[in-house]
């Protein structure tokens, strides 16, 4: 396998975790709710997936079970932050602590076992013959296609091309105005926070069923936090969120390939690459094009609970 193919192949595989979690976060933040529980949701998703494939040999079932558990936790979080209007940051941190703690407790009986079933590679005819990208993107497992092709396009269409998407964004920008226009603010928030949480848990399932096929305590290793950061970097848009996940995966892979090839750069610098890259990519476009500030701006009501009587 040549250098570029190997590089892209691991980048797609590793970036998928971040991309899927970031997509979930985009949904929640677009309706105005910061969900810092991504890390905990990913841990819950990861252990749910492993527990499921230990019982039944169908990885898809494991993935769906993780989505369901994520949705369940998402509902609890949404109930607290949307209906009860509790502080979103604190609830998110509580969700992370609870999720990682619960996952490691449940995980005790599952650690030290390889996953019994994993998502196998599916080669897409013709496309997998393409140079470089063919092997890297089109001979991966089904979740990779879902994360990089189907979901971002679907979500982009939903958010920016439909009436419903406009309503959804209005809820995140100005809930009072949306409310006045007859949009059910709390119901929309509740639904999309739940959906976003399900995707975050799905990212955990992807981790244990497709990337590192086993459970071990701490397997998420802070990727949930990086996903939250990537959403800001991606300007709260689904396609850039996925691309930034891929970019992050690519830069990380570059660090490893650099070490493997013995490039004359200190390993510490190569390990810093993803973070240096992120900083550069956030700062440069904003400095270069004034317009980017508006495009990259956060939803105006992000993090604020909505009280109908306080306008």
């Amino acid at each position: 396998m040549d250098l570029l193919t190997g590089l892209f192949s691991t980048a797609f595989l590793a970036g998928g975790v971040l991309a899927l979690a970031a997509l979930g976060e985009v949904l929640a933040e677009r309706v105005g709710v910061v969900n810092l529980g991504a890390e905990g949701l990913m841990a819950m998703g990861a252990i749910t997936a492993i527990a499921t494939v230990t019982a039944t040999p169908y990885p898809m079932l494991g993935f769906l079970a993780a989505l369901a558990v994520g949705a369940l936790f998402g509902m609890v979080f949404a109930a607290a932050t949307v209906w009860l209007r509790a502080n979103q940051v604190l609830c998110g941190l509580a969700l992370t602590l609870m999720g990682t703690g619960l996952a490691s407790t449940i995980g005790r009986s599952y650690s030290g076992m390889p996953a019994r079933a994993v998502f196998e590679r599916i080669e897409i005819p013709l496309l997998s013959q393409l140079p470089i990208l063919g092997k890297a993107l089109f001979s991966q497992n089904i979740l990779v296609y879902l994360i990089y092709i189907i979901l971002p396009i679907a979500l982009h269409y939903l958010l920016f091309k439909t009436r419903h998407g406009l309503n959804l964004r209005a809820v995140g920008e100005n809930p009072a105005a949306a409310d006045a226009a007859g949009i059910p603010v709390n119901a929309i928030r509740f639904a999309y926070v739940t959906a976003g949480s399900a995707l975050a848990a799905g990212a955990g399932a992807y981790l244990t069923l497709a990337f590192v096929p086993s459970w071990s305590d701490g397997v998420v290793a802070g990727r949930g936090w990086i996903a939250v950061a990537l959403v800001i970097f991606a300007g709260y848009r689904p396609i850039p969120a996925v691309l930034s996940g891929l970019l992050f995966g690519l830069i990380t892979a570059l660090g490893f390939v650099g070490q493997a090839r013995g490039w004359p750069v200190a390993p510490a610098v190569l390990s810093m690459l993803p973070y240096l890259g992120t900083i550069a990519l956030i700062i440069v476009p904003v400095l270069a094009w004034q317009r980017m500030r508006r495009v990259m701006a956060a939803p105006a009501a992000l993090g604020e609970p909505y009280f109908r009587d306080v306008r």
């Binding site: 396998m1 250098l3 190997g6 590089l7 192949s9 691991t10 590793a14 975790v17 981790l207 990337f211 590192v212 086993s214 071990s216 701490g218 397997v219 290793a221 990727r223 990380t252 892979a253 490893f256 390939v257 070490q259 493997a260 090839r261 013995g262 390993p267 510490a268 390990s271």
Partner: peptide, 26 residues
Amino acid sequence: QTIAINSWFDPQAATQAGTALIDNGC
């Protein structure tokens, strides 16, 4: 050929490092 992943425990990084080493002929 060594790759330092700056952790004693990071299955994701170790997986990537292993892949990079094999891609490079190890």
